[in-house]
């Protein structure tokens, strides 16, 4: 890893990237290029700002979650998707949707119909939380969170969640819930649970981000062995618990806003490290900004392609952000990882 470098330039670069794509998002819509004009201009500006804010918050949450997971597991491949949090949210959503369908009539007669007013996002939150709890519980050895154990349990939980999604999709049959899940799994900024949902996630993200920044020095020390870290006065098991809970909450929040978007939690931390070096405070700050910029950029791409397709006479819908992040993020990750793999092999 790079030695620690001054933060000013990386912060300026990341901020400029975010401001740049944010401006682009305001100027590139799904109905026109440029600043909206006409009867509905103010409504359209509000719509674009809403999507911009949703994408930015989800991007920050995913990126900060990724930094946190990579630090606590000492594994550069760790991210919310890999640890089963995103697939847990998907499984929770489909189980909740099917349960609502089955329990609907009974709930009406027993006065429990309030339960049915909860959105599918409630299922996603519950699923992510349950997955986190399972990974957290099974990934401990003698009461201490084991990095390798957490990673392995995360992969297993992710696989089981995936199987659960497949089973529920199979039982649901074609159309309906199955289609909802298929679309939701692509990652979409339209799955947002509204402004109140955004506000909750934004608040949690701000608190989690600030907490991790405050613990940044401890995260640096935690990259040493547990004994070395303890010798330097850092309680690593406690730090891991804090970081893991924050990562899970942020990842769950991002999933409720944008669906299970892959790679942002992986790419943003790596880009940040390339700019700042290994210090976690710098990485956290820059990765958050870059995560936001990445997801906003993906939304710009979706809007631009939609608009372009219309102008070419072959209109299509907005390509979900998750598709862009997976496509671009996957390639970028290979480019980032390739030199490191070469070094490891030597």
């Amino acid at each position: 890893m790079k030695a620690r470098t001054p933060l000013t330039m990386p912060l300026v670069v990341a901020s400029l990237a975010l401001v740049g794509v944010a401006l682009l998002r305001l100027l590139v819509g799904t109905s026109s290029w440029g600043w909206p004009a006409g009867d509905h201009a103010s409504s359209i500006v509000a719509l674009r700002v809403d999507r911009l804010l949703i994408a930015a918050v989800a991007g920050v949450a995913l990126a900060v979650s990724g930094v946190s997971l990579q630090a606590l597991l000492r594994n550069p491949l760790a991210e919310p998707y890999l640890l089963g949090l995103s697939t847990g949210a998907a499984a929770g959503m489909i189980v909740f949707a099917l349960f609502q369908r089955v329990a609907g009539p009974a709930a009406d007669t027993t006065g429990a119909s309030w339960f049915l007013t909860l959105g599918d996002q409630a299922g996603a939150w519950i699923g992510a939380a349950l997955s986190m709890a399972v990974v957290f519980a099974l990934g401990r050895r003698r009461g201490v969170l084991d990095p390798l154990g957490v990673l392995l349990v995360g992969v297993i939980v992710s696989t089981i969640n995936g199987a659960l999604v497949l089973l529920m999709s199979h039982l649901a049959g074609p159309g309906g819930v199955r289609d909802d899940v298929a679309r939701w799994m692509m990652g979409s900024l339209s799955v947002s649970s509204g402004r109140s949902g955004w506000l909750v996630v934004a608040s949690l993200t701000a608190v989690g981000w600030a907490w991790l920044l405050w613990r940044g020095r401890a995260l640096d020390v935690a990259t040493l062995t547990d004994d070395e870290a303890a010798a330097l006065g850092v309680n690593v098991p406690r730090l891991r618990t804090e970081a893991f809970v924050i990562a899970a909450v942020l990842a769950g929040g991002a999933v409720t806003l944008a669906g299970p978007v892959a790679f942002v939690g992986l790419i943003a931390p790596h880009l940040a490290r390339a700019l700042t070096g290994a210090g976690h405070r710098g990485v956290l700050l820059v990765a958050g900004l870059l995560g936001a910029a990445l997801l906003v950029a993906a939304d710009v791409a979706g809007a631009a392609v939609k608009l372009g397709s219309e102008q070419l006479g072959h209109p299509i819908g907005v390509v979900p952000v998750g598709v862009w992040t997976a496509l671009v993020g996957g390639v970028a990750f290979v480019v980032l990882l390739r030199p490191r793999l070469g070094r490891d092999l030597e």
Partner: peptide, 8 residues
């Protein structure tokens, strides 16, 4: 119906 392009 799941992903409305409100702007358009």
């Amino acid at each position: 119906y799941l992903d409305i392009d409100y702007e358009r």
